[in-house]
Design a protein around this nucleic acid. Structure first.
Lengths: 188, 188, 188, 188
DNA sequence: TATGAATGAGCGTTCATTCAT
DNA sequence: GATGAATGAACGCTCATTCAT
């Protein structure tokens, strides 16, 4: 076998970081290649285009969430507050990158109108997150209320990350998390 | 005397629209010039750079909000719900563009880490909006609670616009507005 | 007015030469720019793409032939042999370039199946040349025979240029010309 | 022992087809590898370069013509017209590919000035074809006249193929064939 | 003020080729 | 013999910007 400097997954992980920090259009293939330690041209052995790379990043996020994060919201034995805490932690790990904000929010605002291939994946992921939140709320609220609360939660989450980024102040997002956990605490 | 084809304000208004729809990095000076009806070279008589143009756009937004929108939230005779309604309407007019979302949110996510000149203006504007919301909430809540609610409101607003854009569904943002108005309704 | 290093027509003339010598695909925009004394990027002020440049080259050939060459074949007072001689000379001047062969033949073989925009122009030009030959033959042959002979003549012309190029021997094409002139000589 | 996925001859046959359709410069090694079912890297076990591949294609054409096609023109018992018919048929089979035209004409126009290694082979082949035509004409014409007619025939053949390609009309080439056969028919 | 030619760097992508495995 | 990762140069083209006119 030939020398393998990197794996596809390593590229996806590193590219995700660069995109998070610089945005889709402001990230060049050179930036990505440099981050990975390849030449620009070599990048195309792994991904046929910049667009396809982003698609695969989003797919890997979708997979990661389905495998490891959504289940946290559906855990049978934990109370809502614990599930909320674990879910937010897991979600943050996959989707939020220091200083760069949330890859989902970033990508939605920058590209949703331009790349249908992105939009479809992004809606799938956002739907999945909302349903997970909704399941947590179901412990305390009606079906309908849970749905609404879940959507609001994700909206506020994206807003909170935006604020954190603008003010370079991570505690804004941490406060948001605490608020969400408290909301589902039943201190009987 | 030479012909003046456009005014600086006209350029700012049109450029704001283009940036809202295409994003900062994905908008070229050619795009802007074409929209305004100037040639690329002529553009530089009005704005020395793309960055400076965006700065002036943000400044004009700041000015517009201070002049015409924040006062709506401080109106002495109107009840909170009416002020909320008027304020949201005024804010949307200045800051939200059809399909393109909110220029503030877009610009924060795309550029806050890259252009300090943008960041300062954006914080000023976001602070102003939060304080306006807070003033509305003050009719019903404590100082501290109003502050928190105001920040949450703006977060959720940005999230709601993001959702509207992703799902191409303006009613998500309209529902958000209704929710905010109801929150401060005191139907005694 | 800004400094003008070159005119569009100069570019067309020089690009025609380069394309004739190197072929369409083997000619890079850098090659063309260098020939003209511009940077690659500057080229795009004159032609929006390589394809469009070739289109305009073909259009200028069509125009040149219509203006100055076809009329030679329709000259009322000259005998067929003189018209043939003048027409071949005029045609060669526009369409054949030393060592590079015939831009029409080259472009047909290399691109006719790839660029519909080229094909349409090429057929127009080839039709015009055939009709001119046919008009010369009409002095001695029937309508129908003239048509056939005209087409054969252009075929042989392209073949003769191909041979000249392959053997680096211009006299092959010159012999062809003599043969064509003799064919319409009426030595009464 | 390692698997041999293809033979050199198979590659040559398939590459000939691709080059015929797309031209030399517009055909990439990836195109060729894909057509053959090999990966790009594997290709270089068979041919050290794109140029060398084309050389071997031309050599194989030369060989094929010498083995199976030229003899048709020298057949002792057949009359000129039958030899012409068989020879044209045999020649077409080796050298002409549907839609793509004649590999010889294509390659001459595109590369004769660029690759001396091609030029030598191409002249050898063209000479061989001319001599075969000449031999057919010898039945009816003088040595000298046969030579001239033979060269003219090949020129017109290449021109006829060019026209067929430009107008996407194979009957132009078929008409040419009929004309050549009739020319040597002696209907006594 | 407006023009548009020119720049030089950079874009995303493809090229022919190499070579350790 | 076959692989496919890697190269480095080049591709066609666009970028933000400059400036003589």
């Amino acid at each position: 076998m030939p020398i393998q400097k990197v794996t596809k997954n390593e590229i996806i992980a590193k590219a995700l970081n660069v995109f998070s920090n610089k945005g889709y259009h402001n990230t060049s293939m050179s930036d990505l290649a440099a981050e990975v330690g390849l030449l620009k041209g070599s990048f195309y052995h792994y991904f046929i285009s910049k667009e396809e790379l982003m698609v695969q990043i989003l797919e890997s996020i979708d997979y990661e969430l389905k495998s490891n994060v959504y289940p946290l919201a559906f855990h049978k034995q934990y109370p809502a507050s614990k599930r909320m805490k674990l879910f937010l932690k897991g979600l943050s790990k996959v989707v939020i990158h220091k200083n760069g904000g949330c890859i989902l929010g970033n990508t939605i605002l920058e590209t949703a109108n331009l790349y249908p291939s992105f939009r479809h994946l992004l809606t799938t992921i956002m739907d999945g997150i909302v349903q997970s939140f909704a399941n947590i709320y179901l412990e305390l609220y009606s079906q309908e209320q849970s749905q609404i609360l879940a959507q609001q939660t994700l909206m506020e989450l994206e807003g909170a990350i935006m604020f954190s980024k603008l003010y370079s102040n991570p505690s804004i997002f941490q406060d948001f998390q605490k608020r969400m956990i408290q909301r589902v605490e039943t201190d009987s």
